[in-house]
Amino acid sequence: MGPRLAQLQGERLPEWIAAVRADDLPSMHTFINGLTLPWSSGVLEGHVNRIKMIKRQMYGRAGFKLLRKRVLLAS
C-alpha cells in the first residue's frame, strides 16, 4: 500500500478504499470513513489559523485576557 501512495496515483483512490474496507483493520476503516465524509473542516481550520496569527503577533506583549478580547473582537 505504501508505494502506491508515494507515487501520487489519485485516480486509484476508489480501488484503494475498497481494498482497505475488505481488510480487517478497524483503525484504517475509521480513516477511510473520515476521507469519505461529505463535509470539510476548512472553515474551522481558517479560524484556528487566524487565532494562531493573533497569538503570534501578541507573543510576550499581553496576557490571556487581552488575547481573548482581540480574538473575540476580530471575528
Rank of each mutant, 00 (worst) to 15 (best):
S40Q: 14
G2M: 14
P3K: 14
T36V: 08
G63A: 05
L67C: 04
L37V: 10
P14D: 03
L72K: 07
G2S: 12
E11P: 02
L8S: 15
F31W: 12
V71I: 15
Q7P: 06
G60Q: 04
G42K: 09
E11L: 10
P26C: 03
M1I: 13
K69H: 14
S40L: 06
N33W: 02
R56V: 06
E45Q: 11
L35D: 04
V71A: 07
R56L: 01
H29N: 03
V71P: 00
N49V: 05
R4K: 11
A19F: 13
P14V: 06
Q9D: 13
I32M: 09
N49D: 12
R68F: 12
S40E: 11
G34F: 05
A18I: 10
K55W: 06
M53Q: 15
N33M: 09
G46T: 00
N49S: 14
E11D: 13
T30H: 07
S75D: 05
A19D: 15
K52E: 01
A18C: 01
P38H: 01
P38N: 04
R61I: 05
K65I: 07
G2Y: 08
L5P: 00
D24F: 01
N33H: 11
I32F: 08
L37Y: 06
P14R: 04
R70L: 10
F31H: 00
V71G: 01
R4H: 12
L25D: 13
Q57K: 12
G42C: 02
N49E: 06
Q57P: 02
G10T: 15
H47G: 11
L72V: 03
L44K: 09
W39I: 13
I54C: 04
D24T: 12
A22P: 03
R12T: 15
V20R: 00
R68K: 11
S27A: 14
G34M: 02
H29I: 02
P14G: 04
M53N: 14
E45A: 08
I54K: 05
S27Y: 08
A74E: 09
N49A: 15
S75V: 00
P38E: 01
L8E: 12
G63M: 09
G46V: 02
I32L: 07
E15N: 07
D23P: 00
S40A: 12
S27D: 08
L25Q: 11
M58K: 13
G60F: 04
L37H: 09
W39F: 12
V43Y: 04
E11I: 06
G46F: 06
A62F: 13
V48D: 07
P14M: 02
V71H: 09
Q7M: 14
P14W: 05
G2D: 13
S75C: 09
L67D: 02
L13G: 03
T36R: 05
E45F: 08
L13A: 11
L37N: 04
W39H: 08
A62V: 15
K65T: 15
L25G: 02
